[in-house]
Simulated scan of single mutants.
Amino acid sequence: MADAGVRIDSWLWAVRVTKSRSAATSLCKAGHVKVGGDTAKPAQTVHPGTEVTVVTPHGTRVLVVRQLLVKRVSAALAAAAFDDLTPAAPPREERTVYAVRDRGAGRPTKRDRREIQRLRGY
């Protein structure tokens, strides 16, 4: 099984990056998963040593596959299946403050939405 590789959506679910496999598949289809720098489809296989970048609502994570898992395992075993190269979050004092829209300002324009996304780091 080690030579064949494992689907990226199945691996992300098995190592507890997402709560369900369908959520992992959705991340892949939306383009939020990169394998080796290229956008990954849900059926793409990963092998030990592969670098995986995942953009989740909690931030971007950079993982290196150490062990192939098909089934979901305990948190301790899942943590041993990858190396986490995610940079540390800045201290709370250094984090950017989110802009607050004035009440009654109406819907955000396309430009406003793009600025909000840029501020949030998407």
Rank of each mutant, 00 (worst) to 15 (best):
V17L: 05
H32M: 09
V15W: 01
H32V: 07
R114W: 03
P57M: 07
V17S: 04
A4L: 12
V15K: 03
A43Q: 07
D38E: 09
E51A: 14
D112N: 05
V33E: 15
A75E: 14
R16M: 07
V52W: 02
V54H: 04
K34T: 15
V17T: 04
H58F: 06
Q44G: 02
I116G: 01
V97Q: 12
S74I: 05
Q44H: 06
D102I: 15
A2V: 11
R107T: 08
G106L: 15
Y98Q: 10
H32W: 11
V35Q: 08
T50L: 04
A43M: 06
H47I: 01
V55G: 03
H58M: 10
R103Q: 11
A105D: 13
R7Y: 10
V70M: 10
T50N: 06
P48G: 00
V52Y: 02
D3L: 00
R95L: 13
L27E: 03
A14R: 04
R66S: 00
R107Y: 07
T109L: 08
V6S: 02
S20R: 14
K34L: 14
R92P: 06
V46M: 02
R120I: 14
A75G: 10
G106P: 11
V73M: 01
E51W: 08
D3M: 00
A105I: 15
R103G: 06
A4F: 06
S10Q: 15
G31A: 11
